[in-house]
Design a protein around this nucleic acid. Sequence first.
DNA 1: GATTCGTGGAA
DNA 2: TTTCCAAGAAT
Length: 401
Amino acid sequence: MTGQEIPFPPENSRIDGLAATFAARLIDWQRRCGRHDLPWQGSDPYRVWLSEVMLQQTQVRTVLPYFARFVARFPTVEALAAAPLDEVLALWSGLGYYARARHLHAAARLWVARWPGTCPQGAQEWAQLPGVGRSTAAAIAAFVQRERVPILDGNVQRVLCRLFAVEEDPRAAATARRLWDAAHALLPRDPDDMPAYTQGMMDLGALVCTRTRPRCDLCPVAELCAAHRLGIAAQLPRKRARAPVPEQDVRWGWYEEDGAVWLVRRAPQGIWGGLWCLPPADEAPPGRWRAAGEIARLTHRLTHFTLNITVTRYLPETPRAAEHAAAWGEEARCLTPHEALALGVPQPLRRLLAQAVDVPIEHAKGNMRRLGVAKGKFEVSERIDEHDEDVARLFRGKEKP
DNA sequence: GATTCGTGGAA
DNA sequence: TTTCCAAGAAT
């Protein structure tokens, strides 16, 4: 078997023996060199599901503190289902892709309603939860139910592109279909091997078959790898040409009254859907306001575009916050910056609020330029306990049965 | 099939 | 600094 490669796409007549070798070597390597101490590894379907959603397009290191806070507040799917969406968004604040949090909350309620006291049985049923697609459903089912279904995340795509020396863009639909077929053909025969095998595919991509500088000298399946034999492992998968990122200018209003600032809930669709944010500078709360200068200019880089945010401070001509609150309804709140930090807010606003109250927050790292002040780089430490107390106080008594 | 959706790590 | 992209899914 040594030195042979697995044909791509795999042919049934030749695949069995080679696939068995691939799976056996990967499983053995995972048990010796893979990751075994991640906090979601185990038999709890809730923790596996939660982690898989958090890990979508997000690195393990980033997820770890969010996962810890989340399971501390919501130890079970029943606790998550009973919570208000606002508290879920608050705990998700800073993690990004907030549709995941909205889907997670809806999925928890569907879960307890349709599978009370248990959980979805198999990938087919896991995929019925909102926010759980084919790859996530397969990962959960492989770990929890030992089902023989393949995953195809970014790591596995890269591993397979190298294993078969695939030159095409793995994101193209036609190529992706062949990669799914290949991933299925490589699965181990014994269902009991599925957890170690699936974790092994993830670990291999994350620890050995990395995007840059792959460690082929440590790879348990290097002898089966076409790209390694051709000496092009580091060049695969081919990167696609990317269009230049456009810029967009946004103006936010810092409407301040008696040390509190107005926030409005963003629409559920679109960027930062459902989160609390400063209102646009030209949409003042009820009452008469006067501009009091620019507070900050923020540059926020996203994958597909760059946001240039200008924040202007406004002060009331006449103090009457209570009337404003009644006039602007439930989707607007006037809170101190400290209180606002306990809500689900976009990361650039989180940085601005943290600076306003000089309260460190977790994962608020980056650059911010204050007018009249030299450009400063700040990195703040973790104050999880205090933040959690704020969250608990803000949402106390608001849970639904 | 192509877009949209966040943030931060790494080179 | 810039660029790529990570345990992808929904539209």
